[in-house]
Design a protein around this nucleic acid. Sequence first.
DNA 1: TTCCGAAAGTGACCTACATCACGTAACGCC
DNA 2: GGCGTTACGTGATGTAGGTCACTTTCGGAA
Lengths: 192, 192
Amino acid sequence: MDAKEILKQHIAKTAKLTDEQFDYVFSHFKPQSYKKGQVVISEGSRVDYEYFVVSGCLKAFFVNDEIKMYILQFAMPTWWSSDYGALYNQTRATINIDCITDAEVLCLSNDDREKICSELHPVEHFFRWRTNRGYLASQKRLLSFMNNDTKARYEELLALYPQLYNLVPKHLIAAYLGVSRETLSRLYNTHK
Amino acid sequence: MDAKEILKQHIAKTAKLTDEQFDYVFSHFKPQSYKKGQVVISEGSRVDYEYFVVSGCLKAFFVNDEIKMYILQFAMPTWWSSDYGALYNQTRATINIDCITDAEVLCLSNDDREKICSELHPVEHFFRWRTNRGYLASQKRLLSFMNNDTKARYEELLALYPQLYNLVPKHLIAAYLGVSRETLSRLYNTHK
DNA sequence: TTCCGAAAGTGACCTACATCACGTAACGCC
DNA sequence: GGCGTTACGTGATGTAGGTCACTTTCGGAA
């Protein structure tokens, strides 16, 4: 299945578009290929696009004091990623995004999103729901952070994305969970 | 300024509505008064409404094992609050909302929101942006959780809502920060 | 005013996790 | 193939914050 079809089915889940409407929407997306390790957004740079992942896996992360890295999101296929704060407010990026694996994405500029949102009501509807799902996921993760210990969060993460265990190095999983790589290592080696 | 005017100005910041359009939108909101301590949503119950705070302060919280409480949000005037997971997915509430002070709110049902969103494009636009702001706030808080220690988060919170210090009991602030009330107490008493 | 329950302070102790330090295994790349 | 870089395991030690137990302060109702 090609990028266009993947996006079409993804949108169709929340908004009804005619084929012509979708073709028009799709014409605003720019396909892009990245190699493993390539940088998509780096802190301090301008942010003009958001990214729809077609294949591969990105990570959105924040680096504190040039030392500690915290992963905000692993972006898998059909996920969206960007520095939305910078994108919406037209400010410089405060987070980074790069590629954990080779990846294909579709880029949508901020201006084009606002344009197609205002031109096509169902598109605005789609983006409202997409954002809502992101909001709910974020709240859920926040709760999990406060409520669960590291081990529980680790199991929760693997239950949600079983692929992740083989796909990404362990220290990235630790950075997502917000613990040191040593602690994570001990977690599944000491007991079990 | 009355509830209607407060909502009108709030919406006007992100969407242009004519007076007639706003009157129509407003007709779907139901004003409601609550006393301090009254319950708005309780875990396990049905969730039919979201709430726009006109005056007073609500808290949205989760209780673990009937013991520990975690506060997801203090809802101040012009903030929205609900169990959005339950509201959007038509499931039972997983969180609670009650009133820290006497409060006036405007209630909007899920059906009515979807109705006015589909009838009026600018309304859909407004709700997309509102949700987006919530998403960004939630991400920011998540980052702060991973990155900052308790003291830094405490100061961050007070910088954001100076009113909170006098308005809500300290153990609720502790529940927002995700630490025990004892730890919070020591925080501003030992050094300072 | 008195009284009671809730909120807040405080000491003693314990635990989960960070940090530092070092060793080993796995992988690109010349 | 050899070699450096990155990932991962593991011990020793320090510390922030949790938990428990008790005391003190405060705010509202009779």
